[in-house]
């Protein structure tokens, strides 16, 4: 009987730790970071296919020209607080127009089912485009603010830039949350109405408070708010990438 007893050599602690980490690293797939995911998406799909719709590109160009031409017709005599309010209210408009067009076009199109079964599905393409649209909107808004700051000396470029960025990303978060909870065209109208009415009501109910928020909060506070909004926005974009359709047809 003694002959049948096997002696299994017990590995030492460092070997156990090394072997566990080896098993874990080989057994678990390392999650790609958001930026490297977007990078590999661009490499594999390509810009041409991420923005494939020619009609969409013409639409984007028309919207850009239309919205930014508005800045050329701002009257010379205008209240400075109204100008800040105007920047805060309208900064997300370009982003909204582009994102909604993409969202509705992609999710309502007859190609939805085919594209949803691809490696990079509809929601991943939408998330990518929304990111591209927010970056483009930020750049174009900055240029427009620079133009306004040159025209009106009382406008502080940095404050206007922070206001515009905060407004853009705050609105983007609201829109993403709304779209991910209720995927209807109606929700877009509701979001836009809430944004415009909310701002207008706040301004008319307590003009001093509204102007105070826009004009007197230190720029550094706006920088912190902007940073927070940016982080939350990126998190929601990540959620959109792994977004799952729950409902469907019978």
């Amino acid at each position: 009987m003694k002959k049948d007893q096997f002696k299994i050599p017990m590995p030492d602690d460092s070997t156990i730790v090394r072997q566990i980490s080896q098993i874990v690293s080989q057994g678990l797939v390392k999650r790609e970071s958001f930026s490297s995911y977007l990078q590999s998406m661009v490499q594999q799909v390509g810009w041409r296919h991420l923005f494939s719709d020619r009609l969409e590109l013409s639409f984007i160009l028309t919207i850009v020209i239309g919205i930014y031409s508005l800045f050329l017709i701002i009257p010379n005599q205008v209240e400075i607080q109204d100008l800040y309010a105007f920047i805060f209210l309208l900064s997300p408009i370009l982003f909204l127009a582009l994102s909604i067009y993409t969202y509705v076009n992609k999710t309502q199109n007859a190609t939805y089912d085919v594209e949803m079964a691809c490696k990079y599905n509809v929601y991943q393409v939408i998330a990518f485009r929304m990111l591209a649209f927010s970056v483009s909107t930020l750049i174009l808004n900055t240029l427009a603010i620079a133009f306004i700051a040159m025209k009106f000396e009382e406008i502080h470029f940095m404050r206007a830039f922070m206001l515009s960025g905060t407004s853009l990303f705050l609105f983007s978060i609201i829109l993403l949350v709304a779209l991910m909870n209720r995927r209807t065209k109606g929700i877009v109208t509701v979001t836009l109405t809430v944004w415009i009415m909310g701002n207008t009501l706040l301004k008319s109910a307590n003009n001093d408070f509204y102007n105070g928020v826009l004009l007197h909060i230190p720029v550094i506070v706006y920088a912190v708010i902007l940073l927070c909004c940016l982080i939350i926005y990126m998190n929601y974009l990540k959620k959109l990438i792994v977004f799952k359709q729950v409902e469907g047809v019978f």
Binding site: G46, H49, Y112, V114, E115, C118, K119, N121
Partner: peptide, 23 residues
């Protein structure tokens, strides 16, 4: 069941697009 497509695309263009989405 309902295979959607872009009317102005040729089969080659559409399949190139889908191939890109498939990586």
């Amino acid at each position: 069941q309902q295979f959607g497509y872009y009317k102005n695309y040729s089969p080659k263009q559409y399949m190139l697009y889908l191939a890109a989405l498939k990586g």
